[in-house]
Design a protein around this nucleic acid. Structure first.
Lengths: 158, 158
DNA sequence: TTGTGTGCAAACGATTTGCAGTACC
DNA sequence: GGTACTGCAAATCGTTTGCACACAA
């Protein structure tokens, strides 16, 4: 399954005239074998643990290409909470994302999807990645943040 | 209306033991008389044009307090696209947000709201900022950016 | 008077870039 | 062989912080 996605990426590279380098292959393999979400730092650490060299700039550059390929999506939760996740083409899920601990929970809701498509159509708007993210505090983190009206984010986020 | 919000902010400051300084008042006045979304840079420029001194650190610090007060919400679209908007307490709207030009369009959809409340309830999740944001490309920008993949839809996005 | 807020300059940290060397095709 | 990619170091840029001074209460 991870190999499948790596191959899809290689195919994308080939199709767009990108070179298929050792680093790109290794970075993609690492990304696609990571469950859940990951950061640039995560990938860098995982590669080092595997004794594979790939510099941070290369990881950034490759992640950009991965995003262009549509296989990976980027999320920003607060200032220092930059995460990436793998897009699943077979069936996509929507997410509840905790802005405190970064936990993601999946769900699916057809009614919402129908509604948002209609709204976008009405406004001649192109939704780039049809995926719903609901930000807030998960079960574990809500205890510490009792005031529900507190906005999801603050300058100088925890 | 802007004065009304500034007063509400002053009241908040007083209630929480914050000092009511010239800068905080001026920054709040500027923020609340800005239609649509704005950046730290915008506020800084507007104040300079009015010959009012307020340093950037002060603007950042005051925006933090404004966010704490719940009168302003922060959005991040990409790395260098940090925007703030005023929360309207009377009636809230959802937004279509263009990730290219930053344009925001308002809409309202009761069905979606009912659905997401239910989803959150099912997962014991606290939505911090009940507001739906759909990211994508607006009418003007869709031509130039036909296939870029970005996180698209969020509820209470940071 | 007392302590919080301000402004400056410097620090910070994630991300980006210039450039010389490397490696893919 | 030629061009795109890598890695290093340095630059970037928005944001934060330390500190001396100013000012609201």
């Amino acid at each position: 399954m991870p190999e499948h996605l790596t191959l899809q990426f290689i195919k994308f590279l080939r199709g767009r005239g990108y070179l298929i380098t050792r680093q790109r292959r290794k970075i993609a393999e690492t990304v696609f074998s990571t469950p859940g979400h990951f950061s640039v730092e995560d990938i860098h650490d995982l590669l080092q643990r595997k004794k594979v060299s790939a510099s941070k700039p290369s990881i950034y550059r490759t992640l950009n290409v991965l995003i262009k390929s549509g296989l990976v999506v980027q999320y920003r939760i607060g200032r220092r909470f930059n995460r990436f996740i793998i897009v699943r083409h077979d069936q996509h899920y929507d997410h509840l994302i905790c802005t405190k601990c970064g936990r993601m929970m999946e769900f699916k809701n057809g009614t919402i999807e129908e509604q948002w498509s209609q709204v976008a159509k009405d406004h001649e708007f192109v939704i780039t990645n049809p995926r719903l993210e609901i930000f807030g505090f998960c079960k574990k983190c809500r205890v510490k943040w009792p005031s529900v009206n507190q906005p999801a984010i603050s300058l100088g986020h925890p």
